Amino acid sequence: MTPTASWSHYASPRHAMRRFLISCHGAGEQAGLQPPFRQRALPTRGLVYISEGRGTYEEYEPRGLQVPVEGPAVIWLTPGVRHGYGSDARGWSEHWVLFEGEPFAAFETTGLGGRHRPVQKLLRPVEDADAIFRELCVAVAAVGARAEIAASVATQRLLLAILDAADPAEGPAAGATIVDLVTRGATRTLSVAERAAAVGLTARELGDAVRSATGLTVNDLVIEVRIAQAQSLLAETRLDVGQIAAQVGYDDAAYFSRLFRRRTGAAPSAFRRQQARSRFD
């Protein structure tokens, strides 16, 4: 395993940076056997680039999934999702960045950072990763607007380099992935067999593909997508709960409400108050 100097720096970018740029809130790199993370939830997005080695990524309730990691690969961390990860007994080489910002949506359209695919296998190591992280080490440790912009630029260079190293078959460049296709049709009332037939697979093939990419069953993926869409509708519209339930694929509003609460920890009405009070009350 290639030796790597261990370091970590954190920053608190000003609001304008967070709004208009991809802002970097921290970066670092480690190699060898490190203590694993357990039951951690982040306030920002994050990525962990594993250049060499093997390990496991896991999420806790409600998903309870474990996904193997083998470098080169990227672990995508979603704000608020309780997770853990770590190498096997041989250790691994990792580089990590904490970031946020609306411009990341442009990278998401390419298939990077998907909530339903927390571990992304790469075809090859990320080009210039060491050079980019040297820039991040200097920029994140410094103070001021110029340093924040430099850290933002380096983070975007890293994202672009990850995109270049990713498997084209897993992104929009070669057409939608199987997971993308299931996601797009998630609000339709279909059996697993019908969803499989729609993408030209058997039910078992579809289940294997979805589990390999996301750690979820097909039905759990459908529920995750529906609940995510319902959260957006609750926060951004005045539609009542019954209308939202119907839009995301549930005819029974009471069942939808129970499922929503079980998955998010809050009833739909409570979630709306938390997320949209300033706009609708």
Score class of each variant (00 low, 15 high):
residue 273 R to F: 05
residue 276 A to Q: 04
residue 225 V to A: 11
residue 119 V to R: 04
residue 235 A to L: 06
residue 232 S to N: 09
residue 162 I to W: 04
residue 248 V to C: 07
residue 223 I to Y: 03
residue 245 A to H: 13
residue 71 G to R: 09
residue 247 Q to H: 15
residue 155 T to K: 03
residue 53 G to L: 09
residue 12 S to P: 03
residue 45 R to F: 08
residue 207 G to P: 01
residue 261 R to Q: 12
residue 110 T to W: 08
residue 220 D to P: 07
residue 198 A to N: 02
residue 96 W to R: 11
residue 143 V to I: 15
residue 146 R to H: 10
residue 162 I to S: 04
residue 31 A to S: 09
residue 128 D to I: 12
residue 167 D to E: 08
residue 1 M to N: 01
residue 89 A to H: 15
residue 202 T to Q: 00
residue 216 L to N: 00
residue 149 I to Q: 10
residue 198 A to W: 02
residue 222 V to T: 14
residue 226 R to C: 12
residue 74 V to Y: 05
residue 25 H to W: 00
residue 127 E to N: 04
residue 84 G to E: 07
residue 144 G to A: 05
residue 178 I to C: 12
residue 163 L to D: 07
residue 96 W to I: 08
residue 234 L to Y: 10
residue 92 W to D: 11
residue 281 D to I: 10
residue 101 G to S: 10
residue 112 L to N: 00
residue 271 F to K: 04
residue 163 L to S: 10
residue 49 Y to C: 04
residue 271 F to Q: 12
residue 78 T to G: 00
residue 146 R to N: 09
residue 180 D to G: 11
residue 70 E to I: 06
residue 60 Y to A: 06
residue 127 E to M: 08
residue 49 Y to V: 13
residue 272 R to Q: 07
residue 20 F to P: 00
residue 213 A to E: 04
residue 32 G to C: 05
residue 54 R to D: 07
residue 27 A to V: 02
residue 222 V to G: 05
residue 269 S to I: 13
residue 237 T to G: 14
residue 16 A to V: 15
residue 208 D to C: 07
residue 20 F to L: 12
residue 154 A to Y: 07
residue 56 T to V: 15
residue 258 R to Q: 13
residue 197 A to T: 03
residue 139 A to M: 07
residue 47 L to K: 00
residue 123 L to R: 15
residue 61 E to I: 14
residue 231 Q to W: 08
residue 95 H to W: 08
residue 60 Y to N: 03
residue 101 G to P: 06
residue 70 E to P: 01
residue 39 Q to K: 14
residue 6 S to W: 01
residue 245 A to M: 07
residue 12 S to M: 10
residue 245 A to G: 14
residue 192 V to D: 04
residue 171 G to H: 07
residue 62 P to I: 15
residue 186 A to M: 12
residue 67 V to C: 09
residue 235 A to Y: 05
residue 263 R to A: 13
residue 77 L to I: 03
residue 252 D to V: 13
residue 86 G to H: 11
residue 2 T to V: 15
residue 78 T to I: 14
residue 174 A to V: 08
residue 151 A to P: 04
residue 270 A to M: 12
residue 43 P to G: 06
residue 208 D to G: 02
residue 240 D to Q: 10
residue 196 A to I: 02
residue 259 L to E: 12
residue 200 G to P: 01
residue 9 H to V: 06
residue 231 Q to V: 12
residue 67 V to N: 05
residue 11 A to W: 01
residue 54 R to H: 09
residue 37 F to P: 00
residue 175 G to W: 02
residue 234 L to T: 13
residue 187 T to N: 05
residue 273 R to E: 06
residue 17 M to N: 11
residue 59 E to P: 05
residue 172 P to A: 12
residue 178 I to P: 03
residue 215 G to Q: 06
residue 88 D to N: 15
residue 185 G to Q: 05
residue 273 R to Y: 05
residue 206 L to K: 01
residue 254 A to P: 00
residue 118 P to Y: 00
residue 144 G to T: 06
residue 43 P to C: 01
residue 253 A to Q: 10
residue 154 A to C: 09
residue 73 A to K: 04
